[in-house]
Design a protein around this nucleic acid. Structure first.
Lengths: 230, 230
DNA sequence: AAGAATTGCCACAGCTTTGCCACAGTTTAA
DNA sequence: TTAAACTGTGGCAAAGCTGTGGCAATTCTT
């Protein structure tokens, strides 16, 4: 689905320019002459990314930024004519994801917008890379190497596959059936207790090498990975 | 757990400076004089964030960036003495999450490092769309976690399913038969008083964690959720 | 072909869940 | 006011779930 971007800047020329570039990249853009209008629209319908000028009539960009961050984790870029260290640092610290100073290159803004969306994509697991980490455990799914604190240890094929699946879905609890379907590739012909067996052996091996990541069982459902050690 | 940061720069002074700042912020830092060493170390043990200079002896920072991004979605910041639009754009486009030009303020680097970790947290922290809210109670149907004021407590499978159903239909009262049909999946073979039992236990657990949401009984009909505390 | 590793299954023990019951308290309706 | 219907509570036992060690069939190595 097309990404929705809100843009607030009191300079109409800049609005038009950015709007044009973003639209050309295939984004859906709505621009506002001040922060209050943008905030109102955002509360009505949240955008995927927000670009805020700092100096605007009405509420300034930084305040809008904190207000949005308070109720949403949408992506935020701050742009400002004020270029000094303090401004940049407070801008970023206040909750924005990036800070650019005017005059800026529209192309660079495009690149940074796309970088933020890419990061979101990476984090929310659209793509699965083959180097995985959980606590002091890391697994290279390509070379099939598993290491704790850098020292390698052995996992059998099913153990590895199960572990990789859990790590790729470490934010959720995973049901036994889901594991059978995605790790065993067939949910028939295999007792769902088979998952327990592999987990049993995995737990033993992980404990033996003092791995901080643990496989927790979710009663009546399945398992969930915990990185351990906060 | 402490975040691990790898840093590659051929200038020893800069390495020392950044290292000091990052360490002061509580990060665990390892610095390398060139990109090849960093890459080797990364493959051995991945870091949570990587800071790369572009111009270094051996493989340049941009190549290291693409190689890392190829197999991992770790955070990457590129720093460079070359300050022109093309460099910045290609740097970001190649897969890094941020690009800073030398000389840069160490404080700003710190702010940007923390902003990246904050974004990671926002993206991966339970705030997915399967989240249900009622008063100070939060239930994440995906992770099967129930929280009151942020602290987690346990629900059994039926309790969770019943609670989710009530929250999904919080605007109206739900009859016992409807619950049996949609939560138990069979309305035969189970006394309709079974719902009362689960509600009984749910109420006890909710009260124990000072949950503002309450399950009210609708006389002669069923139950209804009230968020409590308006 | 023999041995080793892997892996699914079983049985058992211990724990958790959950439906049901009896009884007391409450609400509704005649 | 009284009887009938309904709900809250504590306890209980059956059913269900998980962890464990052992075992046997299959696959992989040598």
């Amino acid at each position: 689905m097309r990404k929705l971007i809100y843009l607030a800047d009191d300079d109409e020329n800049i609005r038009g320019l950015i709007n044009m570039f973003l639209s050309n990249e295939g984004f859906e853009v709505r621009s506002f002459a001040n922060g209050d209008d943008l905030l109102a629209a955002f509360l009505q319908k949240p955008a995927d990314l927000v670009i805020l000028d700092i100096m605007m009539p009405g509420t300034d960009g930084l305040s809008v930024c904190t207000q949005i961050r308070n109720c949403s984790n949408t992506l935020i870029i701050i742009v400002s004519a004020r270029d000094n260290e303090i401004d940049r640092i407070t801008g970023i610290t206040l909750g924005s994801d990036d800070y650019m100073t005017k005059p800026f290159s529209p192309m660079e803004l495009m690149a940074r917008v796309k970088a933020l969306f890419r990061r979101l994509e990476l984090d929310t697991g659209g793509t699965s890379k083959h180097i995985l980490t959980a606590g002091n455990l890391n697994i290279n799914a390509a070379t099939r190497e598993a290491k704790v604190d850098g020292s390698q240890f052995d996992l059998t094929p099913t153990e590895l596959a199960l572990m990789v699946y859990l790590m790729q879905n470490s934010t959720r609890a995973v049901s036994r059936d889901e594991l059978l379907k995605n790790v065993w590739k067939f949910d028939f012909e295999v007792d769902s207790r088979a998952t327990d067996d592999v987990v049993k052996r995995l737990r033993k091996k992980l404990a033996a090498v003092r791995c901080s990541a643990k496989i927790e069982s979710v009663w009546g459902f399945g398992f969930k990975l915990s990185e351990g050690g906060e």
